[in-house]
Computed example of a mutant assay.
Amino acid sequence: MNALQIKLMPRLDAPSVAPMSVIFSIRSYRDAVRAAWNNRRVVNMTRSSLCELTGMRAPHVTDYLNERETDERGRKLRNMPAEYLPGFEAAVGNSFASQWLAMQSQLTILEAQIAEQKAR
C-alpha cells in the first residue's frame, strides 16, 4: 500500500473508518498497520510520539512499520500484537488494521456489531 492520502469517514468518538475498497486492496496485516500509519490524522506524529502514546517499544515499532518483511539476515520482522491495536488506532486516528482483520473473518463492521449485540 502506498503512502497516498485516503479519504476516511471521520467519527467523533472513535478512529475514522476507511472505505472498504481500500481495505480490500490491502494484502496483509503488516500492510494494514503501515497504511494506518501512513494515513495518520496527525501528519507530523513521530514514531517516538507513537511509542509514548501507546506504550510500544521503539525497536518494535521500527519492525511493525518497516516496509520489508525480513531483516538483513532473513529473519521475519515482528507484527504488531493485538494488545496494542486499540491504542495504536486511537493514536493514528483510523481503523485500517481492525477493518482488515474483520474482513479476514468475512465480517463487515456492521455484521461484527450485530453479532456482538446478539451475544449480549
Rank of each mutant, 00 (worst) to 15 (best):
G55T: 12
A18L: 00
T62H: 09
A90G: 04
F88T: 00
I23W: 08
V33T: 03
R40W: 02
A58T: 11
M1C: 10
E116Q: 13
R78Q: 14
N66W: 10
N94F: 01
Y84R: 02
G93F: 02
W37C: 06
A115H: 06
M9C: 05
R30G: 12
A58Q: 14
P59D: 08
L53C: 05
L110G: 04
Y64M: 01
Q104T: 01
L53R: 12
V61M: 09
N38K: 05
N44Y: 09
G87M: 08
S105W: 01
Q117D: 04
D71T: 10
Q104E: 07
S95Y: 03
A3L: 08
L50K: 07
A36P: 04
S16M: 08
M20S: 11
L77A: 05
A119E: 12
A112P: 06
L8W: 01
R73P: 02
R34T: 11
Q117H: 12
Y29M: 08
M80S: 06
R27Y: 07
S98E: 08
M56C: 05
E52D: 15
M9Y: 14
H60M: 14
I109K: 05
A3M: 09
V22L: 10
E67I: 06
T108Q: 11
L12F: 04
S98H: 02
R68T: 12
E52F: 02
N66P: 00
A102Q: 10
H60W: 13
Q99V: 01
T70I: 13
W37N: 06
A97M: 00
V42R: 13
R78E: 09
S98D: 03
W100T: 06
T70S: 08
F88A: 01
K7Y: 11
I23L: 09
I6T: 07
R30H: 00
K7L: 13
R120A: 13
S25H: 08
S95P: 03
R34Y: 04
A115S: 06
L8D: 00
N79H: 11
E116A: 15
E72R: 14
R57T: 11
M45V: 12
V42C: 08
P10C: 06
V92D: 00
M1E: 06
A115Y: 09
Q117N: 11
K118R: 15
R120H: 12
Q5Y: 03
L77D: 03
Q5F: 08
S16T: 07
D63Y: 08
P81A: 05
R30P: 11
R30M: 00
Q113K: 12
Q5V: 08
E72H: 11
I114A: 11
V92Y: 04
L50R: 05
N66F: 04
I114L: 14
A102H: 09
E67D: 14
P19C: 04
H60S: 15
T108M: 01
R68S: 13
I26S: 00
I6Y: 07
Y29F: 07
A32C: 06
T108F: 01
V43P: 02
M56E: 00
R47M: 15
R120G: 14
T108P: 01
N79C: 02
L85K: 07
L8A: 01
L12Y: 10
A36T: 04
L53H: 09
A112E: 06
K7W: 10
A35V: 12
P10M: 07
A112S: 12
T108S: 15
D71N: 15
P19N: 09
K7V: 10
